[in-house]
Design a protein around this nucleic acid. Sequence first.
DNA 1: CCCACTATCTATAAGCC
DNA 2: TGGCTTATAGATAGTGG
Lengths: 189, 189
Amino acid sequence: MAENRSSKGRKKIEMKKIRNEEYLQVTFSKRRAGLFKKANELYSLCGAEIAILLSSPAGTVFSFGHPSVETVIDRFVNRGTPQEPSVLPSINHEANVPELTRRYTDIVTQLEDGEMKGKELKAPVLNANNGDLWWEDPLDTLDLEDLQHLKFAVGYMKESLLMNTRTTVNNAVIAPHGFGFGFHNGLGS
Amino acid sequence: MAENRSSKGRKKIEMKKIRNEEYLQVTFSKRRAGLFKKANELYSLCGAEIAILLSSPAGTVFSFGHPSVETVIDRFVNRGTPQEPSVLPSINHEANVPELTRRYTDIVTQLEDGEMKGKELKAPVLNANNGDLWWEDPLDTLDLEDLQHLKFAVGYMKESLLMNTRTTVNNAVIAPHGFGFGFHNGLGS
DNA sequence: CCCACTATCTATAAGCC
DNA sequence: TGGCTTATAGATAGTGG
């Protein structure tokens, strides 16, 4: 009777590299959206700051950040000083005001100076889906200021490699950083 | 007979900040694991490089990376040299910039002056809905939570201002890449 | 905070436009 | 390429140890 339902619905797939290029692209797009949505929910529910950097198989770079990728990285850097153990749990908005202010000022300045003319700067993409909102910005067009920013952050983190415990869950490196904020990596899997 | 199964099973939850500290922590842990798992699958299936930096509400920092956080960020930095902007659309926004600039300046000023007092802020509220954008001039109260709204609004404003081509796809605003001005990720919170 | 269990809720693999 | 639909695999809220 209903046997001619030519295989509709989801099926289990093997967790290995997808060969088919077309399917790979589709899967990547779908899962990227799903991942970002999850990240956004985590932010909404827990007020957690989060940054995701992601490169597609084709080489395109995507990112997700709350409140922003740079801010989060900054937080890592500045955390190097164990000032307050766990003071600001849910006030990241407050904590971000200075950053917000600074960026606003920068933007305003740029606009007034007309600096943007002929310059290539990054353009974030605002995505919305059923009330969920997040940014996808192509970091492949970072301007120099941001590059220096990131470079500094990376350099700092490299030097500050100082870790506590490290756990492995599902092939993923999960690194709890108490205060010294060590940066985990290496053995990505 | 089996009615004493006191409410088992998953229930839908509201996507709002969780108040209960204990529950917040549990949810964070679970979702963090889920997020990392998703990230790992994305890596396995698509071979995508990925890095996630995440701070818990308590301030603890976690990271996930394939092949490593460091590597991924490094790639961003090193690949970030702006390529040739193939298209730089002529944007006629001069008329709008002054007004917007003034408004933003006002907001910034107020943020700087009052935000740290941890009280209510007075600023014109920028609203965005379906790509439309307007000012709610009556100086409403802009509390810290409203910064999110402001962020979204800024995104819309930016696009409205700088993107001469804007397409709406499935409830999402998609902005062409390659031009725009320099902040990303909704400029901080 | 980690583990276990279960009922649901959600994400998504396939397929059709 | 992108959206929509369907059926199902997978994630997780609620509860307890």
